[in-house]
């Protein structure tokens, strides 16, 4: 009980971080799963989302205003994702994809710092969520509980769409066998562009939601991308369940792990990644079709 009492805030906070990481990483993972594209501009999309918050939110912000900013971030993310889908469509070589998207990321980062300056900007949490509450005798910021809720909600919605709807079946079919889907008369490029757009929209929303916690400043895009890559590598490329598991693991390693072993704080994250790569090189829960391909 004593141990739990001392660390309950860390565990809870691990889930808040996991929710943010999930929102950002799931797009990276899905885009890879469907399009076979490793989008290194993903972090830049998230940072754009955070700067949408800087541009639209100032001072005291009502819930409605915050919701408008979330929608704006999602819309901008969707457009950026669609643009990235068009750009990467004809590039199939992975190294070239990485170079192309990394180049776009660098340009986007510079443009953002030209427009918004190099100073750290803060994004306010909406009124009513900007305070802290007493939980089990500890103070915890309300906004982070809200982030956990949003993460769970979006996770469930995504899961239901992918597993229980016609659209989801189409996306899963495209992941499994693109040629067959084409043969059945579906334009797979539309499916893929849609997934790219939605993945980027989620990343932008994730960046915006991270704003009240992490702020917005040049360089945050690489932090986002780095953490998302670690989540995807740990969880396994191309699956929602993998992204969830990876995000929860990275979240807990970054909070509970650091709380328990503060002197190893710098090494814990990559130590965990190295361990997973060593034991399960494809990640803990890779997309199911790749497993099937391995068996055949």
């Amino acid at each position: 009980m004593g141990w739990l009492d001392a660390n309950v805030v860390s565990i809870l906070n691990g889930f808040a971080l996991a929710a943010l990481l999930f929102l950002i990483a799931v797009g990276l993972s899905l885009v890879f799963g469907t399009m076979d594209v490793l989008n290194l501009a993903h972090g830049a999309v998230s940072l754009t989302g955070a700067y949408v918050g800087v541009a639209l939110l100032d001072g005291s912000v009502g819930g409605g205003q915050f919701a408008v900013a979330v929608l704006a971030a999602a819309a901008i993310g969707l457009l950026l994702g669609a643009a990235l889908a068009v750009l990467t469509q004809s590039v199939t070589n992975h190294l070239r994809q990485a170079l192309l998207t990394l180049g776009i990321a660098l340009i986007a980062g510079d443009v953002l710092s030209q427009v918004f300056g190099a100073d750290v900007e803060s994004v306010p949490a909406p009124l009513g969520l900007d305070g802290s509450i007493e939980m089990l005798g500890k103070t915890y910021p309300l906004y982070r509980l809200f982030v956990i809720g949003v993460g769970v909600l979006i996770g469930v919605v995504l899961y239901v769409i992918l597993e229980r709807t016609q659209t989801g079946a189409l996306i899963r079919a495209t992941v499994a066998d693109r040629t067959m889907v084409e043969a059945m008369g579906v334009r797979s490029s539309l499916v893929l562009g849609g997934v790219f757009g939605i993945g980027a929209a989620l990343a932008a929303v994730g960046g915006l939601l991270a704003g009240p916690i992490l702020g917005a400043q040049p360089g945050l895009d690489t932090t986002f991308l780095l953490l998302a890559l670690v989540v995807v590598v740990i969880g396994g490329l191309g699956s929602i369940r993998g992204a969830v598991l990876g995000a929860v693991l990275v979240g807990q390693v970054q909070t509970l792990g650091v709380a328990l072993l503060p002197e190893l704080a710098s090494f814990l994250l990559f130590g965990a990644m190295a361990l997973v790569l060593l034991l399960r090189p494809a990640g803990l829960l890779p997309a199911r079709n790749s497993g099937a391909a391995a068996h055949s």
Binding site: F32, D36, L95, L229, L237
Partner: peptide, 11 residues
């Protein structure tokens, strides 16, 4: 796919 996982990790 596996190579891409390596690229991701390396990046």
């Amino acid at each position: 796919r596996r190579r891409l996982a390596q690229i991701a990790a390396l990046t």
